[in-house]
Design a protein around this nucleic acid. Structure first.
Length: 817
RNA sequence: GGGCGAGUGGCGGAAUUGGUAUACGCGGCGGACUUAAAAUCCGCUGGCUGAAUAAGCCUUGAGGGUUCGAGUCCCUCCUCGCCCACCA
């Protein structure tokens, strides 16, 4: 008997599949398509561990299942190669990023291949290939042409360690998302993408996506749509006007002061001479505070009076103007009307500085704290007696009519800052000319090739290392042909990953980013699989680019990823996050070397728990996965060796064997439709245990054909999880074509039920007995049998049956006195 | 503070959505094979009372409720995880 030896069969089939181009996809109109994609990885210095591998295992199992179901499947793989991980790795090891990428992608590819993942490698590319980033630059120019890319000097987040600016999405609690250092603000001219133009669509279109509620709500939260109004307050004794944003225009009569953000330019302008010193000091203090300090919750309110007064446009009231750091310069208009009676922050501020509080909404909330609820208007002139919701509409309409306000929707999201002062990225294809200003590089001059540099460490002065390469910088203006300088910043890596899923449909097109027909065939992505960490970065950016392309008429859909699957994290056996620095990572290479094999690892990845929940890796669990495969192997060998049996001497029926398999087909199919990988594998283990029992009562020598069919079918059900072993045994069962191209098995309803049913008998809700009844027994027969059971009868004796509940196929419940 | 989610054996987790709670796996215990070990195979394994593979009681974070029947539905509370956090 041949022993199960994954070390022997796994490499064999990996080579065979590659040779047969088994996983290469082409447009085939005769079959429904399915595009399954896992986030393309950063080929960083650290090898992939079993946590990363889970992501690809899920995608691969889905792919194989879909293919066997008759879908034409696209399952590509590539490399998110630009960006800091590769560059930092290169700096650390002293090799060039180009070399680092080549080296790391080779290792990642080997790791993916040895796991048996079926990718269409003919579509492979890296985002750092000039053939690819040429088109990333082309999209930059498209955004520029559509007014969605602009350059502006402003204060931006600056990471002092990575020595580059960061997008808002990349600053988490005041620290750099990548290296964890505290970020600073720096004034630099920077390129932005106008994602704010898409805020409304990005929020609205979430409704139709099959994504988890948590990711959707993260995005909604990040986009932060608030409906309200702008109101203009004249500053007394000056021509200045302060515009405030409020979501509660109904409380306008309750506005007893104005608060302006310290950084708002108008704040200094309206400050009176006698308050100038105090305000200047306060602004200085504010700027000295780190962002973490400013975000501290429940912080004592601080602020200073500016000396100026504003006029409330609705009632002519004269109210003081203060400045305080709880009002943010970057949101809304940088100024608010404070309504302390109905806003907690304003309440706290008014209490601290002894400012007037006037209640304008009557409801059952107490007077001695702020009341944010709805209610009836009071102290509000002509609006008294209205419900707040009515008052809101009426006041906004009146303000608009008088030209002192208007309806307004505000978004929290800011424009996406894409300039990076780092070497390893796609150069921004713009040229700065003294005469013509910023001029786009003509399309026929793309790509703007990233020059080779020996020493590409960031300079830290806010300028990109590319600024040191004179041959790169000095160029001619495309418009006037005069001397000009290239833009030296590179693009955020997230720009490169905002369209890669489209490129996979047509990865080697040299004339355009992709062929419209090919994209139309494959996109949108049907299943997108990855961790939740990209919620407000990649997943938001890619959605925006998709909408831009739709507006440009390049594609015919508005969302790139119909279904998003966020896999749970694999933790180290100690329950901690796996990381190289903690030294607790487990890599598949070692497990394969130990002899478990890729198939057992794949089973383990999926069986460890629900795919979307995190789980701690279990060293012992690997043994269980291996044993299951080993038992499958051994049973198949027995079937092969007993081949040639005939049905001549039928003594025992083989119905039970058929039932086991048909039930397994039913359960595994159903579980896989719902991504129930762990229960699908459990069902297979259960079926295998039953087969081991059945071989004692249904001899293989007698029912050889049925056994042969049973193992064949079993292997097909197992194929999405354990592709190598099933392929090997499929061949040993004399099949010439790959098991992965075979059709998913079907089941016959009649084998899902047995001849007899077990009916539970309850008395007053407690289980007292089980009775066996023929599957075709009538309701009356079953109730009679239930009542006649000795155990049940004991509990029924001398009692009056008040009610009998009958659940077909399940139970009889007697309610007695 | 707000949002989303989760609490089931020694452990990872099942439970057809209101119908035998603890499937499957790990771990543990016992046995077979072996000079022995590994590997493999076969049993048993939620808790308590019991000699018992007799019988009974208890058990899904805690407490209440609805129901013949609740892990599942409703109310109150506790704990943990993730995300957002002075956004007017």
């Amino acid at each position: 008997m041949k022993r199960y030896n994954p070390k022997e069969i796994e490499p064999k089939w990996q080579q065979q599949w590659e040779q047969d181009k088994l996983y290469e996809a082409s447009e085939d109109a005769t079959k429904p398509k399915k595009y399954i994609l896992e986030y393309f990885p950063y080929p960083s210095g650290a090898a992939m561990h079993v946590g990363h591998v889970r992501n690809y295992t899920i995608g691969d199992a889905l792919t194989r299942f879909a293919r066997m179901q008759g879908y034409n499947v696209l399952h590509p793989m590539g490399w998110d190669a630009f960006g800091l991980p590769a560059e930092n790795y290169a700096i650390k090891t002293g090799i060039s990023p180009q070399q680092a990428i080549a080296q790391n992608t080779a290792r990642f590819k080997k790791q993916l291949t040895q796991m048996g993942f079926g990718y269409d490698w003919s579509r492979e590319f890296a985002s750092s290939d000039p053939e690819y980033y040429r088109w990333t630059q082309w999209f930059f120019l498209l955004l520029y042409k559509r007014g969605l890319a602009y350059r502006k000097e402003s204060l931006q987040w600056w990471c002092p360690v990575d020595k580059t600016v960061l997008a808002n999405e990349q600053v988490e609690n005041g620290v750099c998302w990548r290296c964890g250092s505290i970020v600073e603000k720096k004034a630099l001219p920077q390129w932005f993408f106008k994602i704010t133009d898409y805020a409304d669509r990005l929020a609205a279109d979430l409704d139709d996506l099959n994504w988890t509620d948590s990711i959707k709500s993260m995005q909604r939260n990040w986009i932060g749509c608030s409906k309200g109004a702008e109101v203009h307050f004249a500053v007394e004794g000056s021509g200045q006007v302060i515009t405030v944003f409020t979501t509660r225009p109904d409380t306008l009569y309750g506005a007893t002061f104005i608060v302006m953000a310290p950084e708002a330019p108008l704040t200094t302008q309206i400050t009176t001479d006698d308050q100038r010193g105090a305000v200047a000091d306060y602004i200085k203090q504010t700027q000295a505070k780190s962002d973490i300090e400013r975000q501290e919750t429940n912080r004592e309110k601080t602020g200073v009076f500016t000396g100026a007064y504003a006029i409330n446009p609705i009632n002519g009231e004269r109210i003081p103007i203060w400045t305080a750091d709880y009002v943010l310069a970057g949101y809304g208009t940088g100024a608010i009307m404070a309504v302390p009676a109905h806003d907690e922050r304003d309440w706290a501020f008014a209490k601290k500085f002894d400012l007037p509080i006037r209640r304008v909404v009557q409801n059952d909330e107490p007077d001695d704290q702020c009341a944010h609820g709805e209610g009836t208007m009071i102290n509000s002139g002509e609006y008294d007696g209205l419900e707040t919701s009515e008052a809101r509409e009426k006041i906004v309409a009146d303000l608009a009519r008088k030209g002192i306000g208007s309806e307004r929707i505000n978004y929290k999201i800011r424009d996406w800052l894409i300039s990076r002062q780092r070497y390893w990225g796609a150069p921004i294809p713009m040229i700065h000319c003294e005469k013509c200003g910023s001029v786009p590089v003509p399309e026929d001059q793309l790509p703007v090739v990233l020059p080779d540099m020996q020493s590409f460490e960031p300079s830290g002065d806010g300028r990109s290392p590319l600024a040191r390469v004179e041959e790169f910088v000095n160029t001619a203006c495309p418009q006037c042909a005069g001397p000009a300088m290239r833009e030296t910043d590179t693009m955020d890596g997230f720009a490169c990953s905002s369209w890669y899923f489209l490129r996979f449909a047509d990865p080697h097109n040299a004339d355009k980013p992709f062929d419209a027909e090919k994209v139309k065939h494959w996109l949108p992505v049907d299943d997108y699989i990855g961790g939740a960490e990209h919620a407000v970065m990649h997943l938001l950016y890619a959605r925006m680019w998709t909408k831009v392309m739709q507006d440009e008429g390049l594609i015919n859909f508005n969302e790139p990823f119909k279904t998003l699957r966020n896999q749970g994290m694999i933790l180290a056996p100690d329950g901690q996050k796996m990381s190289k620095s903690k030294g607790n990572t487990i890599e598949p290479d070692g497990l394969i070397e130990q002899g478990y094999g890729a198939d057992a690892i794949r089973i383990m990845e999926l069986f460890i728990g629900p795919w979307n929940q995190s789980a701690a890796w279990s060293v012992e669990g690997m043994g269980g996965s291996f044993r299951f495969l080993q038992r499958t192997w051994a049973l198949t060998q027995e079937v092969i060796e007993s081949a040639g049996g005939s049905d001549e001497h039928i003594i025992v029926k083989d119905d039970e064997l058929k039932r086991v398999i048909h039930r397994a087909v039913h359960r595994v199919s159903k579980d896989l439709e719902e991504m129930g990988f762990n229960t699908a594998i459990a069902a297979l283990m259960e079926a295998l245990n039953q087969l081991y029992k059945l071989k004692l009562t249904i001899p293989m020598g007698v029912h050889g054909d049925t056994w042969y069919w049973a193992m064949e079918t079993f292997l097909q059900l197992l194929a999405p999880f354990a592709p190598h072993m099933t392929e090997e045994l499929w061949e040993q069962l004399h099949h010439e074509d790959s098991i992965h191209l075979s059709s998913w098995p079907t089941y016959d309803e009649k084998y899902l039920v047995s001849d007899t049913l077990t009916i539970v008998v309850q008395v007053n809700g407690k289980v007292r007995a089980q009775v066996q009844v023929p599957a075709d027994a009538s309701k009356d027969q079953i109730i009679k049998a239930a009542g006649a059971d000795p155990k049940a009868a004991e509990y029924l004796a001398g009692k009056e049956i008040r009610k009998t509940i009958f659940v077909p196929g399940k139970l009889v419940s007697f309610v007695v006195t």
